[in-house]
């Protein structure tokens, strides 16, 4: 029970802000930056097991306050950092547990010199800064507890290749990414890979809209089932999101995002699924 934990974490940490260039071919101009703080509240009783079977369980709840930042380091180079600043997990009937999440640092380089069809490559180590173990005690069954960590406890490395193209006020992006996962207490995780597409539109001066589809797959078969629910080994999903961002002035803005899960092209496995909203504040300079 994330990713579970991590499976949960994955589903609730996928937001990439509109004005950010996260998984696109663009990089920021030197010295510019973008910061976003967002909050989400997620509740689901719809769990898909590591084999893909659907279960109705006690309701799992997560509240998360997240940071995302980009900085234009120099021409064609962008540095990105993201991290849940506070994540609280609980089931109905258990005491909540909280902590910071895993820190992801990303270094992105635009391979193409011009911006006609920018193509960028990035590497993003994810450091196990979150709580590796956070036992949530049952309120109804004395002695019962469940591990709901706020991080997966493991170092891993994302490598992403992304391309974009703009057509006036419309743009499209696509990316492919591979996550090289390592071990937790000597037990090896399966690697993950993702594909995604994104379309955006700027219908009004201060309003931006975008829609995204992201599919995550796992390589191979589970070798260590004990890593499944708690550590998120082999979590797969299809995530669809729609976001609206309104800028109050040159620097400040607010965003609202709707996210939901699907089972195509990537099946839902080892993950809690529910539709939910996220709201955020952005600052860009």
């Amino acid at each position: 029970m994330r990713e579970f934990f991590a499976s949960l974490l994955i589903l609730t940490s996928l937001l990439v802000p509109y004005l950010a260039f996260g998984q696109s071919g663009w990089t920021r101009s030197p010295g510019s930056f973008f910061v976003k703080l967002d909050f989400l509240s997620f509740a689901a009783d719809n769990y898909f097991t590591p084999t893909g079977a659907q279960l109705s369980t006690n309701t799992f709840k997560q509240n998360s306050f997240n940071f995302y930042g980009e900085y234009g380091w120099k021409n064609r180079w962008t540095v990105i950092a993201s991290m849940p600043l506070l994540r609280q997990n609980a089931f109905d009937g258990t005491e909540p547990v909280a902590g910071i999440g895993d820190l992801q640092l990303e270094l992105k380089y635009r391979l193409t010199k011009n911006n006609q069809i920018p193509l960028a490559l990035s590497i993003a180590p994810e450091l196990p800064t979150g709580r590796r173990n956070a036992f949530s005690k049952s309120k109804t069954v004395p002695g019962e507890q469940i591990n709901l960590p706020t991080g997966d406890g493991e170092f891993n490395l994302w490598t992403t290749l992304a391309a974009s193209k703009s057509f006036g006020k419309i743009y499209v992006s696509g990316f492919g990414a591979y996550n090289f996962r390592t071990k937790y207490k000597g037990l090896g995780f399966r690697d993950l890979y993702q594909f995604g597409i994104e379309g955006g539109w700027n219908p009004l001066d201060r309003l931006w809209l975008n829609a995204k589809l992201r599919a995550q797959f796992a390589s191979g078969e589970s070798q260590h089932p004990e890593l499944g629910f708690v550590r998120g080994d082999g979590t797969t999903y299809t995530l669809v999101s729609a976001e609206a961002l309104f800028k109050f002035n040159k620097n400040w803005g607010a965003s609202a995002t709707f996210l939901t899960g699907g089972d195509w092209p990537a099946p839902l496995k080892n993950i809690y699924v529910a539709s939910y909203f996220s709201i955020g504040v952005v600052y860009e300079k």
Partner: peptide, 9 residues
């Protein structure tokens, strides 16, 4: 059984 989650009843 699976104790990675913590405990069972």
């Amino acid at each position: 059984t699976s104790f990675a989650t913590g405990s069972v009843t």
